[in-house]
Design a protein around this nucleic acid. Structure first.
Lengths: 236, 236
DNA sequence: GGCTACTCTCAGGTTCTTCTCAGCCAGTCC
DNA sequence: GGACTGGCTGAGAAGAACCTGAGAGTAGCC
């Protein structure tokens, strides 16, 4: 699934995270999303890996066993390269240094995050920092349009207001148009990884989405009973 | 984000600062703002770098481990070139030397500063010292006007009084018109880097600004719930 | 020293959002 | 047809995000 928008497909990521569960989750899904992923589990390993691999972007947990994330970045940048970073931080990060993370084209995501949110941020940072606006911030499918930067959604030219979760769900459907997505899959990608509710939440949000963006013909969001959902044009 | 106003885009800066955290903060964000940045961490290194690189402007901490900032400038200028300088000083610097700075076209910013303030000063000094009125001191968006030199703000021709922070916030919004800015981003750019409060201060100042400059139709300051704020004309 | 203007915090109110639950509906299988 | 299963959706509780008034503290100014 998730072949993502093409341009970053070959972007090289370095993921630095000491929790093996989260590291596995991240590297598997980012790889699956089409990124070329390498990993490190400590700050010093990260610095070396960055020298060797010259990644296009680093996903970096600020809490690491040896060096903290800020040290890692400084060491990486001493060699002169200006690699953009997406930081992973705890939600209640009272850490003084958390300020300043959005400078220099970088960004951050607070734990626990959803994979959709992380990949959206990665795409956004790559878009900003890579020369040439190669990848457009606007997704299109049939008469649906979704702007990742301004969070605007249009159906047949009509502006539609979505809540944050509705927006994430629609983006996920659009990035995976014509692909059947199970409720479990959707849950895993759109909701935070610590979400402990059940599948019904997906049904609820599909229902909300239909009411907001799929009231006109042709219908684009289809249910495959017992299998999942798919965004596609009818008569396929 | 922050592609800033175009004109200074190619200006060469030399940033001289011995604190590695602040140096990283500065070089990352100035580079992202479009400047061509090189760095030095000591006075003697700065003198050499200036000879090599011939920067258009120097950002110079007055407190350095070896030479002080004024010495550095004297040595730089012995070779005859008159490079403008923006000094970084401690807030309580009662030093007489600081006083005379604004006479020679130079300027200074007291630590801790905000990035908006520093980049505004850099732009102003470049404007004064570079031949040709390349970058205008007046920002315009819809019927909003903001003069960076006189600190005057007009909405639909009406003069509006803003406090210093309100002014900085509005300038930041105008420099990034049509771009969605998160509260974290705004905090990082408009407030001093040592500010330790929370996001609510941004909400407060947005509220003040709205009351002062956004009481008439069409509304220009928009809230994107869960995302941030954006300055834009409606019906986009 | 006293006044003013400004910055920042806090808390109450409001609106929007998330999530759960339960009942209903629609296919499917016997 | 009847029963079962999966999906849909309205109602509502809990919580999050946002706005704003009030006020404490502070810096700057006369």
């Amino acid at each position: 699934m998730s072949a993502m928008a093409a341009p970053q497909t070959e972007a090289r990521l370095l993921v630095v995270e000491d929790d093996p569960n989260i590291l596995e989750l991240l590297s598997a899904s980012l790889r699956f999303a089409g990124f070329d992923v390498s990993t490190a589990t400590s700050g010093s390993a990260a610095v070396n890996a960055a020298k060797d691999r010259r990644p296009d972007l680093v996903v970096l947990d600020v809490m690491l066993p040896d060096l903290d994330g800020f040290e890692v970045i400084r060491l990486m940048r001493e060699s002169g390269t200006r690699t953009p970073v997406v930081f992973l931080t705890a939600r209640d990060a009272t850490d003084d240094k958390i300020r300043g993370l959005t400078l220099g084209g970088d960004d951050y995501v607070t734990k626990p995050f959803s994979l959709e949110e992380l990949t959206a941020r990665i795409r956004a940072v790559l878009r900003r920092t890579t020369a040439g606006d190669q990848s457009p911030s606007r997704l299109t499918f049939a008469d649906l349009e979704l702007d990742e930067e301004t969070h605007e959604v249009y159906r047949a030219g009509q502006r539609i207001q979505l809540s944050p979760t509705e927006f994430k769900l629609l983006r996920y459907l659009m990035l995976n148009a014509n692909r059947v997505l199970s409720k479990a899959q959707i849950l895993d990608h759109v909701w935070n990884y610590d979400f402990r509710g059940d599948d019904n939440i997906v049904e609820s949000y599909i229902s909300y989405l239909r009411r907001k963006v799929d009231t006109t013909q042709p219908r684009l969001i289809h249910t495959l009973r017992g299998v999942g959902y798919v965004l596609r044009k009818p008569a396929t």
